[in-house]
Amino acid sequence: MHALTPLLLLYLPPSLRERRRYLLFEVLSERAIDKWELLKEILDSLYSLYGDLGASESKVWLIEYHTLDGATGGQGILRCAHQHVEEVRASLACIHSVNNVRVGIRVIRTSGTMKGLSP
């Protein structure tokens, strides 16, 4: 088989996909922060707290992040495995700065679907 198998072949039917949780979170920061730097910090915190093994089970990915007006913070959506929400929450709480910008993160709401996050 060719190394570049089309990604479509890797898709699982919905019934076999692993369950996920989506976390809507808010960031309070001194200055505006970059999405990728935030993701790097989230993953660093997760690896530091739970190690490679624990982090592999959480399956964290940052779906979306945007800065709010006034640039004192932002909101974003994070995806993780459905049984590891509390672990992800703890590693989000352990983040104190992103690129030397002080931040505080709070999870606003969790849901099994992206749609469920909007009230």
């Binding site: 703890a90 931040v103 993160i105 709070r106």
Partner: peptide, 16 residues
């Protein structure tokens, strides 16, 4: 302000 954590976050940290 950046060091305050919401109650649910405190629970998650206390669970550690």
């Amino acid at each position: 302000l950046y060091e305050l954590r919401a109650p649910r976050e405190m629970f998650a940290l206390a669970a550690l």
